[in-house]
Design a binder for these strands. Structure first.
Lengths: 349, 349
DNA sequence: TTGTACGCGTTATCAG
DNA sequence: CTGATAACGCGTACAA
């Protein structure tokens, strides 16, 4: 089968190296390397054919590790995610991973599990593996961690959330417009006493933006509209229930509604309404950010702001790839539009 | 600041190498390496201190890439997932990623997006980066792809689904018991005409097992119980509606119920019931596999079989780590128990 | 057009 | 206890 095999590498567990290919084709490593990288153009037809044959027969493929070590380029992209269990995160992750793969990059994933202490470790570990760039969807508590990445000259693209005051590319939702869209819809549906419920803001930029936008909206429409904001402590359902009861009390006879800052909060508010015996739509209006697949089935259907998650992931990736190609534009901020899916939770009567 | 700096590496973008540390400490690379790997024990106190200082001052940390090249061990684990958008997949992924990280491993993620053509590419790409082992949650259509991994002598742990007839470690749910638990619950709640709804089985082992277990159960309880199975084509809601109407017709006056094979199907069945104007619980019983966070809020609450996803991920990881340590047991099959969360969708009247 | 020699950052072997 | 030196698999000047 392999009569001219100088040093039989077959049957050994390890993968064939470029040297094996060279031996089998009767050429030098350099020739094989050239064939692989520049194509057969710069080689004589005879040699090219022999190398091609050897590559095929051995099932050779170069070691990305060794290539990374040599070139300094790893074809790896580091993806840090605040919480893989968050539907927004995975949806974006999905788009980004696909785009990376199609561009010949592999994704190294680091999940923070909402533990901000891990942020440093994440970008350290990842850059150890020579990832060429980062896509970050983090809590944004550790801007110092970013310094490391920046110092190493690796491009960074932020998703959804700004980190500290770092001047970096950011891909996310047009939160201002989205909040307006949602609040306007509540108002148009007749809910005039509004409560914006969010996870504790704690410096997360997108949460801040949404809360601020809500505040602006309410101020503009005052006094026809009234509204306030509530930061729901994680796990404390009683506090949330109390906030809703306050909303009801303050509203008096006016219809009242809630704008939930993300899917998790939407779920918690819906559950609270159920506890209080309130029917969504009839007794309380509800529209939430993020439009998960279960939205149509909660109560009379959950009205929701849907984000173009797939696009966000894809665009973040192409943004990063541009930087890798050396594009030296100033930091961009790409804000994508939201869409409203109106369902039963904002239909009164 | 650095008076004895032979070759100033500071201010250069690249990370410090072991050579930089050696120079700064006035020792050889080998010494630094020893200090790093075996600890300061085998070194004179003086040298150890100098090296330690240099490491700290330079903020040096070894390149996992170079280590991987040299040692053949990369501290990387390949994780292939059928679909990151599937709540079961992410939940398992979460557990596995955490366990890996705690063991000092990083996860390279490859998402198939339910495209079985990518299976080959996934394990090829991953093994190129010298991943030490694989955790696989795939469609299982390409057992040939596994051969590559096996041939390279890399351990593989399967999650939830068997692949071909490969004899490999498998961590998953005790599907037999789980199906019994669910079906028994439906029966005990008074639903005596049952339909098992699953995604197209197409050789996916866990789907097969669940369907088969359902068949067994029905046979055992016959004729008090009757049941059949329906494979819901993706995206074809009309077919699902029709299947449910058939169920109703065949049931006559007897209460009927559905056992959904996973969360996606649960959602589709719930939606179909809504289209047909049937109230969950009262008009149709429903219990589904997987217990996502939204289960309590769909209709009167969705009765669900919850899987210990976190444990599955964690155990799969430790299983793989054992193999990496060279444990040479025969292929194990670790089946975890399911739990039932009964809610409104199985309460008649 | 092809081969030789060296270096990427690390570890391991073998002297000293 | 420590220091040269040779790999690991690959790319690339430089030389032929």
């Amino acid at each position: 089968m392999a009569p001219t095999d100088p040093t039989p590498r077959a049957a050994t567990g390890s993968a064939p190296t470029i040297q094996d290919v060279a031996d089998r084709a009767g050429v030098s490593k350099a020739t094989v390397s050239r064939y692989l990288n520049r194509g057969g153009e710069q080689l004589s037809a005879d040699v090219a054919a022999r190398v091609a044959g050897a590559v095929r027969e051995l099932g050779y493929s170069p070691s990305p590790m060794a290539q990374a070590l040599k070139r300094g380029k790893s074809k790896l992209i580091g993806l840090v995610v605040a919480d893989v269990c968050n539907s927004f995160s995975v949806a974006v992750l999905r788009g980004a991973e696909k785009a990376c793969r199609e561009a010949g990059y592999l994704v190294m994933l680091f999940n923070l599990g909402n533990d901000h202490v891990l942020e440093r470790e994440a970008i350290r570990a990842l850059s150890g593996y020579q990832v060429e760039g980062f896509i970050l969807h983090t809590l944004g508590h550790d801007s110092a961690a970013l310094a490391d990445a920046a110092r190493l000259g690796k491009p960074v693209v932020l998703i959804d959330r700004r980190i500290g005051d770092a001047q970096l590319d950011l891909v996310g939702l047009d939160n201002d417009a989205a909040v307006r869209l949602a609040a306007e819809h509540l108002a148009a549906s007749g809910y005039t006493r509004l409560l914006f419920v969010t996870e504790p803001v704690r410096g997360v930029s997108s949460r801040e933006q949404r809360a601020r936008a809500f505040g602006h909206f309410v101020t503009e429409r005052s006094p026809a509209l009234a509204g306030s904001t509530f930061e729901a402590p994680a796990g404390d359902d009683a506090a949330l229930d109390a906030a809703l009861r306050d909303l009801q009390r303050d509203a008096g006879t006016a219809p009242f509604g809630v704008l939930a800052a993300n899917a998790v909060i939407s779920l918690r508010v819906a559950a609270a309404a159920a506890r209080l015996g309130w029917a969504l739509g009839r007794d309380i209006g509800l529209v939430g950010f993020d439009d998960p697949e279960w939205a149509p089935l909660v109560g009379p259907g959950l009205s929701a702001i849907s984000q173009p998650t797939d696009d966000i992931g894809r665009i973040a990736t192409s943004c990063l790839l541009e930087r890798l190609r050396g594009v030296a534009l100033p930091p961009r901020q790409i804000l994508l539009p939201a869409a409203l899916n109106a369902r039963g939770s904002t239909r009164r009567g």
